[in-house]
Amino acid sequence: MISEQLKKSLQQRVETAITPREAAVDVMKELQRHYGWLTDEAVGEAGELLGLSPLQVEELATFYEKIYRRPVTGKLIQVCDSISCWSGCCDGIIEHLKKRLDVELGGSSADGKFTLVPCCCLGRCGDAPVMVIGETFYGNLTPEKVDQILEKER
């Protein structure tokens, strides 16, 4: 359940959009901030706000990789595996992250501090390989640098 206040502000957001779909990402992001991830309940609520069916919200939610339809534990690490980072050897970085956190891609570390997922190009190809933890960006990664960052973020 969302608060009346949040509901009101989201309704306002939808009203100012030219088409409701245009406001969908904002609505989903706010609901995600509220619940921690976009729960089934949140999908239904987004649908009501936007005048879409749950399926139509799901279509959008599952298209955008920064909308999470599954619970996210701790901080989210998104590591780019698109073409520039791939040529910058992101494979090694991903392997290193997996080893350090002892998780597979999509999994959460045992201490509940991190969840590791791959992502598409973050638009910072010049700094390849790159990752984002929470909202903080890190580029020109090396295994050593990754270790330091994890230490800091933990």
Partner: peptide, 11 residues
């Protein structure tokens, strides 16, 4: 409205 396409790329 109850049937559509979800996911992206290979999914």
């Amino acid at each position: 409205t109850d049937f559509g396409v979800t996911g992206c790329a290979g999914r």
